Amino acid sequence: MVIAAACNSETILAANLSRSPLLDHVPLQTEWGAGSAAHAYNRALDATSQDIVVFAHQDVFLPRGWEKLLARRIAEVAAIDPDWALIGAFGVGADGPHYGPVWSSSLGMIVGRVPLSPIPALSYDELLIVLRRRSGLRFDTSLPGWHLYGTDIVTEARRQGLGAWITALPCIHNDRYHGVLGQDYVDCYRAMQRKWAGQLPLRSPIIKISRSGLHLWRDRWQAWRDTKDRLGMAIGTDTPVEQLAALCGWSDLTACS
């Protein structure tokens, strides 16, 4: 196993992902200066050889015992789907709900239903994606920027008949409040509309990708209207990630079933 991260801040990396206890014995591959998430992650694939690649944001913290829990979750998925390709920590299940659980600092809460068994996925939040190298999947470098690639790679896996699953992999996403979806998000949304025109609508964890695009404008307006409430929900990212894990009951995941 290897952890791979696209990075742009030594400070954020040092305060979050680099503090994960598993990095004492699991390698971390960091990619700097990439023009998009797809370019960064494909570079990480090319620079490593391990079959299990965990793509994690630089502001994610993996509590003690997380890698042992992942091994158990992989075994659970493999019992259902021996040729699985992807596992996500948070996403939209094929049955509709959002599954986790993960802590989000930008929301000030644990988010996502706890799946009692692996759930087929429609899309992932990009905070953490586990990719099985032997699946042959790679990220699409024709897609711009840093958004919606979790929805894209799940859709690609499903198109190829490969399994994409969500399992309970608790982790800390020490993310800042994001505000209204910007032009960079609009560009990614438009790219997904073009690429998957024949499969629309698609559901990302944040938004529905539809032919008309009305969901984009509706959700941007809603986010602007709810700015004050959302700011009130968010907590500062300066709380030590170990403290956040402890408050969630995730100080040590070794014994988690």
Rank of each mutant, 00 (worst) to 15 (best):
L13I: 05
D252K: 09
L13A: 05
Y185P: 01
I129T: 14
S18N: 11
L162S: 06
M233K: 15
M1C: 02
Y177E: 08
P144E: 05
G163A: 15
R64G: 06
A191N: 05
L247A: 15
E10N: 06
Y189Q: 08
S18E: 08
T167E: 03
E242R: 06
V60I: 15
I110Q: 15
N42V: 13
R73H: 02
V111G: 01
P240N: 02
I80D: 13
C188A: 15
G182F: 00
E76M: 14
L17Y: 03
V154G: 07
T30R: 14
T237L: 08
Q183G: 01
V186A: 07
D46Q: 13
L128G: 00
S204E: 01
F90V: 10
R132F: 09
G88R: 01
G145I: 05
L45F: 14
A71L: 11
R194K: 14
I235E: 00
D226S: 15
C248H: 06
A197L: 06
L62M: 11
R73P: 03
M233P: 00
C171P: 04
V26K: 10
L143D: 08
G145V: 02
P144A: 11
G236E: 03
R220W: 09
P82C: 13
I206W: 05
D252S: 05
G96A: 04
R72S: 12
G100A: 09
V241K: 00
A223P: 01
A75Q: 14
A15G: 04
E76P: 12
Q50K: 10
V92H: 07
P21D: 10
R132M: 08
Q243S: 07
A157E: 05
I74K: 10
Y149S: 07
F61Q: 00
I119C: 09
A78G: 02
Y124R: 11
T30D: 04
W224K: 14
L13Y: 12
T227I: 03
D187E: 14
T254R: 05
S106Q: 08
P170A: 04
A78Y: 08
V130D: 10
G182D: 15
V114P: 01
A245H: 03
A85R: 05
H39K: 08
V102Y: 00
R190C: 05
G179D: 11
A56K: 03
P63S: 04
R203L: 07
D187H: 13
Y41M: 13
Q193E: 07
R218S: 13
G108T: 02
Q29L: 06
H98G: 11
L70N: 06
D175L: 01
L244P: 04
G232F: 10
P101R: 14
S49H: 13
Q29P: 03
R211Q: 09
T141H: 08
R176E: 11
G182Y: 04
R43L: 11
E67W: 04
K228R: 13
D184T: 10
T227N: 11
C256S: 06
A164D: 10
I206P: 00
V2E: 13
I52Y: 12
G161W: 08
A6P: 07
V130M: 04
T11A: 15
A191L: 02
P21L: 03
P21C: 12
G179E: 10
R220K: 14
A157F: 07
P144K: 09
L23I: 05
A75F: 05
S20F: 00
R220S: 07
Q193I: 04
H147E: 09
G136K: 12
